Computed example of a mutant assay.
Amino acid sequence: MPDLMSENHIGPLISSFLVDGVGTLGFVALSGVALLARVRKRAEARAAEATFDGEKPLVAGEAVLFGKVERAEGSDTTVRVEVDQEGEESESSGVWSHKWTEKKRRVFVAPFYLRLASGDRVRIEPRDDVFLVDEMDGLVRVDLKARIRYAELTPGERVYAAGVLSRAPDPEAQPAAGYRTGGEGYVLRPPRSGRMLLSSQPLGERFHERARFHGRWAMWIALTALAFHIMFLGYHIRRWAGTDTTATIRKLDHYVTESDDTITHHYRVWLSTRDELVVNDEVEEEDFAWMHEGQILPVRLVEGQLASNTTIGGHLTVHHLAWSVVPLLLGAWLIYRVRERSTRPWYEREVVDEGKGKLEETLEAEKKRSRPPQT
């Protein structure tokens, strides 16, 4: 009798582990990871935004500039990142789909200028390790299974540039008095131990977007945990509104139900408490076999309108379907991690695009809208 439990229930220790350990602490920890990531990204956004001061005069040292892109004389580019993609197609149940996967990435850089709001014209000299934050909206369809996607800074585009500013020779600067050759001007170069940042977005925007992503997932994780606890609300009702007591068997009822050619045996026990409250519960067949009317059994009693949550046995237990919380938590963690990676912007991940239909069906349409890099 110490192990007496309702039908399909599991022991009190495992019940607490599933509901309190996995269903509560596990989801709280996962939601906490998402919230911490949100806090970190918001802090990075504030730090990035604090680096820019549009009113600050040009002085040597670390600097963040904002201005309009102008090409250098005789140059046909500024900064361009090209991604070679290879296409493949597959069929499932008569439905075709295709995927483009990044195979190679190239960076083309050339000195260019930023025209600041003050009227100053600053020469920008990036390296090929430049960190470009821009829309990858360029496309060149090469053939059936090859295409190029690219991002490029174009003349007239307004961008932020972060690097180290210094006075240096500038071939397009106005020559100083008494000199026939070009003079000096302000030149922005990458830091010695870092990368130059060129961004067409506000400096904090990419961090704000990731902060919003982690915030949304913290909410979804919390809602998933809430849904689990609602499904097993009876466990919490027995915990907070139930009491351990005894009741007397008044009736033993064995009946059968059928559905979809499945026969199910039910073993229901009707009991009454010392206060003459009548409750009932189902038990396993092996327990039902030794029970008889008039017998006294331990129960976890819930009174009033919630009496249907009463269970036979002297322990707090939950239905074995609570095991579902384990794959539920692991699934939430896995989907969160996969989405965190797959939704990163192109400059922080491998560029993979998917679509419906065969590659041949997209060939002509993509060739028509192909926009080769500006020259």
Rank of each mutant, 00 (worst) to 15 (best):
G314W: 00
E276F: 10
V22W: 02
R105L: 05
A307Q: 15
S342H: 09
G242H: 01
E7Q: 11
Y186L: 10
N280Y: 00
S193K: 15
M231C: 11
D20G: 11
R40G: 11
P298M: 03
P298T: 06
L36Y: 12
V107C: 04
W333A: 15
S259R: 15
D129I: 08
A177S: 13
R206I: 05
S272P: 04
G331S: 14
A48T: 05
E293H: 09
L4E: 04
G61Y: 01
K358G: 06
P171S: 10
R71Y: 10
A307T: 13
A247R: 00
A72P: 02
G331P: 10
H265E: 15
Y179I: 07
V279W: 00
P155G: 07
L301V: 04
V140K: 07
T24Y: 01
L153N: 00
K368G: 14
A60K: 11
G204L: 02
V59L: 10
E293M: 09
S193Y: 14
Q85K: 06
E44C: 07
R115H: 07
D137T: 14
R274C: 02
W270L: 11
I237N: 04
K103P: 06
T224I: 14
Y150A: 03
E62A: 13
H236T: 13
R195C: 08
R46F: 05
Y179P: 00
V107N: 01
R339V: 09
V302N: 00
V325S: 02
V22M: 09
E258S: 13
V39H: 12
A222I: 07
L328A: 14
T77N: 14
G32E: 07
V299T: 01
W346D: 01
A45P: 02
L233W: 12
A168I: 04
E91Q: 14
Y267L: 06
R147F: 02
L223G: 08
L277F: 05
L4W: 02
G23N: 06
A177R: 12
L271M: 15
L144K: 14
T264F: 03
P126T: 03
L18H: 00
G163V: 02
W217N: 08
R192F: 08
F27M: 04
R127I: 05
R127W: 06
E350W: 01
P155N: 06
A365T: 15
S118E: 10
L114T: 02
Q305K: 15
R212V: 12
E125T: 13
V133C: 03
S92M: 09
E258I: 11
E102Y: 01
A50Y: 03
M1K: 10
D353V: 12
A161S: 03
L25F: 11
A37G: 15
E44V: 02
R195V: 10
I296W: 02
E285T: 09
